[in-house]
Design a protein around this nucleic acid. Structure first.
Length: 749
DNA sequence: AAATCCGCGTTTTTT
DNA sequence: ACGCGGATTT
């Protein structure tokens, strides 16, 4: 996503002359739009609410509308602000706009990226921060909180950093909202501790010249409210403001939207109350439900309803609507389509999570055999841990897949290390980054030394990094640590010039100066190789950033990196089946969709029900609705009778939602009946005690039979127990590596 | 200061 | 069942 920081100089100025009208064909803009869509695109001035049901062509409408505003001279590209839910959506929308007009100056981004961008320019006005501020992610936030809890003398077991962090986030998201009943967090002593920690936390962030995710929004709001002139600069600049996925905005975002649209009043919001799934992180469905009342001032709000669905077949749509109609708090809306089909939504009952995964894998193989491409298929689940069984089953079945979310690239140690170096270069006050890298690679500066240095710095109100440059501080520690600190100081001096340059150059400099690749090790172990690959990937990512954002610089790169989201990693074109959570699936579509784990307390999730029985249930229902409406042609819902959870297997009750969905139930596959699922015969499940037996039975040379691959001979065994990898040569399927635990091999005499 | 061991919480969803 | 953080070794 290009971030041209400099283009703000034009802020507040009206275009010099009325823009040349229609530098491109206006008719092309209105092609292939139905009446409602056209009405939304052609809306002139004033507030517009687009109630866009799932699959009704909302993105197309927004894109065309932006293009139309530009084409007709109603706004110059730099006078338009469009907010999307993910960076990926922003990139796509920008690309689509680029097909119509030169998009230079157009702002399309997420709320968070917009916040970072505005603050990079304006934050000094708040006092305490500089434009080189760091963005702390959840991990660093929790580290900091843990430290503060301990400093204050509290037990970090009782006052868990993550819990306090979640509470703080909640507080920040609702900052200006009258306190809602039951959301005030813990009361009594606990509440006091929380508040105390929060005060320290915010102070520490300021000292570190850092912001957390929520601050990226909140600080902009504070800025706008403390400095109306700054607010007006942006409010004047953005003649048209468009917000997508408005049903998922929180109160701070709502206030920001108000401010940004305050001068021209040209606000378009787009969304679907039935797809509001982020209530747990402060999203307020009331924002969209009350939009007409809120923004209906002198000019009445125009409401356009998009109800014609272009995505799904009739059966899928009926099933999804059958479900969502059970929500009581709901605006009436009926989606319709003229896509007919024979395939009904199917429900499949499975034995346990592995049967479920194998059943899904088998159906995917059927789909592939019938000519579907892997990228037309997706599997959704409520909770990330379900990914595991699915992944193993797909791997076993030889189906290529990608997991969206999951173990994140930017969470890897080596990536965090390097990013921390860069952050420290840009922002020497970033203590979190400094503490992370001061002893990487090892310089003999251990916990004790670090503590000494931190105390020295704290007493003087200096950042941790300053200790490296101060002789007095260096003399606090002895021997190897002192020498190490000197090295670190030299390193920082050597790297300092790179703070200004492009990202890739800085990264290369860090790699060279720290000899980081050597630090990762030189062996050929898969682990080491993977780390090296990650480093290379990081470098090429930085290069790409530099190329796409010549003006971005290192701090722009770091902003981008901090704000990448799970779905941003989703590769649409890649020929692989997609695995992701229901939350991540929002906005996407696939011809063939599976949704796993439709069981009570999984979907609807138990904790959602405990927290808020009624609202929670309805949001869970919307979540399933979102997942179902991703499907274009075929949809299959699965549930398991038993599931391994927390290390123990428990019986599962089918989700109440299944009873609300018009669908076709498939009998539980009898052993051997469902392709790929076979509980017949002795299943090879080695355990600690059985290890000896297992390795005896499945030693090289053993003859085995496999459900898919038929007869084969074991050629090798790596590892032990359930996680052992078996190399088996099959008569028909060739050589395969199988996981003992899941292979369901039968020994043949 | 690094290496190993143990116990506990974890798994709701994410910018 | 797993991974992390804290505690306990070497």
């Amino acid at each position: 996503m290009p971030l041209d920081w400099m283009d703000l100089d034009a802020a507040g100025e009206a275009p010099a002359a009325p823009l040349a009208r229609t530098s491109f064909d206006e008719r092309a803009l209105l092609e292939n739009l139905n009446d409602a869509q056209r009405q939304a695109v052609l809306h002139g001035e004033g507030p517009l609410l687009i109630l866009a049901g799932a699959g009704t062509g909302k993105t197309r409408v927004i894109t065309r509308r932006i293009a139309w505003l530009v084409a007709t001279g109603r706004a110059a590209p730099q006078e338009i602000l469009a907010i999307t839910f993910t960076n990926k959506a922003a990139g796509e929308m920008r690309a689509r706009c680029a097909a119509f007009f030169p998009v230079k100056g157009l702002w399309i981004s997420t709320f968070h990226a917009m916040g970072a961008r505005i603050l990079r320019r304006e934050i000094a006005a708040l006092g305490g921060w500089t434009r080189d501020f760091s963005i702390y992610d959840t991990y660093e936030k929790n580290q900091l909180l843990k430290e503060l809890v301990k400093d204050l003398g509290y037990d970090a077991q009782r006052f868990r950093p993550a819990a306090i962090g979640a509470w703080i986030s909640n507080e920040k998201n609702r900052r200006f909202e009258p306190t809602l009943p039951g959301t005030g967090g813990p009361g009594g002593v606990e509440g006091e501790v929380y508040a105390q920690v929060r005060a320290r936390y915010d102070a520490a962030l300021k000292e570190h010249n850092a912001l957390d995710f929520d601050d990226l929004l909140l600080k902009v709001l504070e800025l706008f409210e403390a400095h109306p002139l700054v607010r007006d600069q942006y409010a004047w600049r953005f003649r048209h403001v468009l917000v997508d996925e408005y049903q998922d905005t929180n109160h701070v975002q709502y206030r920001l939207t108000r401010h940004l649209a305050s001068r021209h009043g040209n606000l378009t919001v787009c969304g679907d109350p039935d797809q509001s799934i982020y209530g747990w992180r402060g999203a307020d469905i009331g924002n969209i439900l009350d939009f007409e009342r809120d923004f209906g001032g002198e000019r009445a709000v125009v409401v356009v309803k998009l109800e014609r669905n272009y995505r799904s077949t009739e059966c899928i749509l009926e099933a999804a609507q059958g479900l969502i109609r059970h929500n009581l708090a709901r605006k009436q809306k009926e989606l319709w389509t003229d896509k007919h089909s024979a395939a009904r939504v199917r429900v499949l009952e499975c034995g346990d999570e592995n049967d479920e995964a194998h059943a899904i894998a088998a159906r995917i193989q059927q789909g592939l055999a019938a000519g579907r491409r892997p990228d037309q298929i997706a599997v959704f689940y409520r909770v990330n841990f379900m990914q595991r069984a699915l992944e193993l089953a797909l791997r076993l079945a030889g189906v290529p897949y990608q997991i969206v979310g999951g173990v994140e690239f930017y969470q890897r140690r080596e990536v965090r290390d390097l990013i921390s170096y860069l952050r420290l270069l840009v922002n020497p006050r970033d203590d979190a980054a400094c503490a992370r890298v001061i002893n990487v690679p090892g310089r003999g500066i251990g916990e004790k030394s670090l503590e000494e240095l931190a105390r020295w710095a704290r007493e003087r109100g200096l950042p941790l990094a300053a200790t490296a440059g101060a002789r007095a501080a260096r003399e606090l520690v002895k021997g190897r640590a002192r020498r190490g600190l000197e090295e670190f100081a030299e390193l920082l001096v050597r790297l300092a010039p790179h703070a200004e340059g492009p990202a890739a150059a800085a990264l290369e400099a860090v790699l060279a100066a720290t000899d980081y690749r050597r630090h990762l090790g030189e062996s050929g172990e898969p682990d080491v190789l993977a780390r090296r690959e990650n480093v290379d990937e990081l470098v090429s990512g930085a290069r790409q950033y530099d190329q796409e954002n010549p003006e971005g610089g290192l701090s722009g790169y770091l902003s981008d990196v901090a704000l990448v989201s799970d779905v941003d990693g989703f590769e649409e074109e890649s020929p692989r089946v997609t695995l992701m959570t229901l939350h991540s699936s929002k906005g996407l579509e696939f011809p063939l969709v599976f949704i796993a784990g439709l069981e009570e307390r999984m979907l609807p999730h138990g904790l959602a029900l405990d927290e808020d029985p009624e609202g929670g249930l309805e949001e869970e229902r919307r979540l399933l609705f979102v997942g179902m409406t991703r499907a274009m042609e075929e949809l299959m819902l699965t549930h398991a009778r038993m599931r391994l959870h927390f290390g123990e297997t428990s019986f599962q009750v089918p989700s109440r939602f299944l009873g609300e969905i018009p669908s076709e139930w498939t009998e539980a596959p009898e052993p051997g009946e469902d392709a790929g699922v076979d509980d017949d015969g002795p299943r090879f499940v080695p355990d600690e005690e059985g290890e000896e037996d297992a390795s005896l039975t499945l030693a090289p040379g053993a003859r085995v039979e496999h459900d898919h691959f038929g007869f084969g001979v074991v050629e090798g065994v790596q590892g032990r127990g359930g996680s052992a990898r078996l190399t088996v040569r099959f008569a028909s399927a060739g050589k395969r590596v199988l996981l003992a635990q899941y292979a369901r091999l039968r020994v043949v005499r």
